[in-house]
Design a protein around this nucleic acid. Structure first.
Lengths: 226, 226
DNA sequence: CGAGAGATTGAAGTTCCTCAAGGAGTGTGG
DNA sequence: CCACACTCCTTGAGGAACTTCAATCTCTCG
C-alpha cells in the first residue's frame, strides 16, 4: 500500500522515499509553481484542492493567538498537502524553496463513487499522516535537544538525502527558526546543537544550508539517546 | 459536519462534546466491554475493526525502543479509535476506566461502495484527527508546564466536564504518569503544577482523581500564557 | 561593495528534571 | 473490621538543560 507505483499518494510526513513523482495530471490535475516565500494556501482558507508535491519544499505552519507558531510539518516531492478539515485548511502552507505541485479538485463530502481513485488515495494519505504525526510526538516529548536535532537530520536524510561517497548530503531548504519551531526549541539551541555535531565530526557544513552526515551509525545512536 | 446527530463519527482528539452516544449497532456493529487496565488492541496488531467509544476512557500509547512512551491521546465517548495504518494499529489502546465500545468491521482497502456510510465516517474522523493532533503540537512545543497542564485541564473539561454550581467538575480517569507522558513532562512536575493551581485557588481537589475548576476565566488565561 | 537577514557565540537566568523520602488512598487477608 | 501492603501522589533539594538577551559574524543579494 501507499506505493507510488500503484498510484497511491503518500502523506505529508511519510518517511518512505518517493521513487518517482506521480504523473497523473490529465483529467483533473493541473500544475502550479511557487517561488520561495509564496503561499500555497492560508490557515482557514476554504479547501478546494489537495496538492501533490512534485518538486521543492513546503512548510506547514499553525499559529496561536499569542503569535507563537508551530511548524507542523515539511513536505517534499511525493507528499500530498492540503487535506481539508471541515472544508477548510488547518494550516498555512508556504514554499521554503521553489515548488511545483499538482492541484486536484477534491471535496470529501462528495460521494466517493464520483472519484473513487482520488478518494481512496486521500484516505490512505490521511491515515498515513496520522501515524507520521504520532511519530513526531515521540520527537517532541521529553527528549534532549541533541536527540531532537539528530532525529530531524535523519528524517531529512531519509526524505531528501543524496549520496556523496560514503557520506550523505542534505540540502536544508528551511532556516534555523523553522527547524526550531518544528522541534520545540529556540533557534539558538538548534544552532548550538549543530555546532556540537560539527565539532564532534558527526557532520560537516558548507554554509548553513548544506550538510554532510559523516557518521550515520553514530548519528542514529545520538537520535536514540545512546 | 462531524455532527453526531448526522451519524458522523468524531475523531479521537476532537474537542466537540458528544450530545449522545451513537446508536448504530445493528448490521455490522457489536459491543465490547473492558475493565480498567484491559487492552482493546496492541501496537502493530492487525486492524480488523474500528471502535466507537460509548462509555469510559481509553489511553492510546506509542512506545520507543528505549522504553520511553508517549501517550498519543485519550479517548472518550463519541470518539472513534483504531484507525488502521497499513492494515495495522499504530498505537496500543488500554482502558483507563471501565469501557464500552462498538466494534465495526472495517477494511480501508475495500471499495467504498461496500460500506459507503462507514467509509465516509472514517475519512471524516481521520481528517478531524489530523487537526486534533496538530492542535496537540501547539501544546507540546515550547510551552511552560503550567500552560500545558492548564490547557490539558481545559480540554478534559470540554470533553468530560460536569456542571457543579458555578464551577466545573472533572473526574480524571488517568493517573499523573499518563498525563505527564501526554504533555512531555515528568509526573513530579505535573503534581507540582496541580498543587500550585490548588494553592492559587484555581482548582480544588477531592482526592487525586476528582478536580473542580474554580475559576474558568483565569484557567484559560493561564493556558494561553497570560 | 554595501546592506540586511540569518547564523553563531557568549553569559546569565530560569525552568524543569533527577533522585530521594514521606504521605495518602485503596484493596486484601487475617 | 482492622492492619498491613502496595501503588500512586506529593514534597524537597540539588543540578542539568534550555532559554533569554545581546553582540558579533557570515552569507546572500541587490
Amino acid at each position: 500500500m501507499f506505493e507510488n507505483a500503484s498510484g497511491h499518494f503518500r502523506s505529508v510526513h511519510s518517511a518512505l522515499k518517493p521513487k518517482t513523482a506521480l504523473k497523473n495530471e490529465g483529467a483533473d490535475g493541473f500544475r502550479r509553481y511557487l517561488s520561495q516565500g509564496e503561499h500555497l494556501f492560508y490557515e482557514a482558507d476554504r479547501a478546494v484542492f489537495v496538492y501533490e508535491v512534485v518538486f521543492g519544499s513546503l512548510r506547514l505552519t499553525r499559529i496561536q493567538q499569542d503569535g507563537r507558531r508551530h511548524v507542523v510539518a515539511f513536505a517534499f516531492p511525493g507528499d500530498i498537502v492540503g487535506l481539508p478539515v471541515d472544508g477548510r485548511h488547518s494550516t498555512e502552507c508556504v514554499a521554503v524553496a521553489p515548488v511545483e505541485v499538482i492541484a486536484h479538485r477534491y471535496d470529501p463530502a462528495a460521494p466517493p463513487e464520483q472519484k473513487p481513485g482520488l478518494h481512496a488515495r486521500v484516505l490512505a494519505a490521511a491515515l498515513e499522516e496520522i501515524r507520521a504525526l504520532q511519530d513526531h510526538f515521540l520527537m517532541l516529548g521529553r527528549r534532549s535537544a541533541a536527540e531532537k536535532v539528530a532525529a530531524f537530520i535523519l528524517w531529512l536524510e531519509h526524505r531528501i538525502g543524496e549520496g556523496a561517497g560514503a557520506c550523505r548530503l542534505i540540502r536544508l531548504s528551511m532556516n534555523r527558526a523553522d527547524i526550531a519551531d518544528h522541534l520545540g526549541l529556540t533557534p539558538e539551541t538548534v544552532s548550538r546543537t549543530i555546532t556540537q555535531f560539527r565539532e564532534s565530526r558527526l557532520i560537516a557544513l558548507d554554509g548553513a544550508q548544506t550538510m554532510l552526515i559523516l557518521d550515520m551509525p553514530r548519528m542514529k545512536s545520538v537520535a536514540e539517546g545512546g
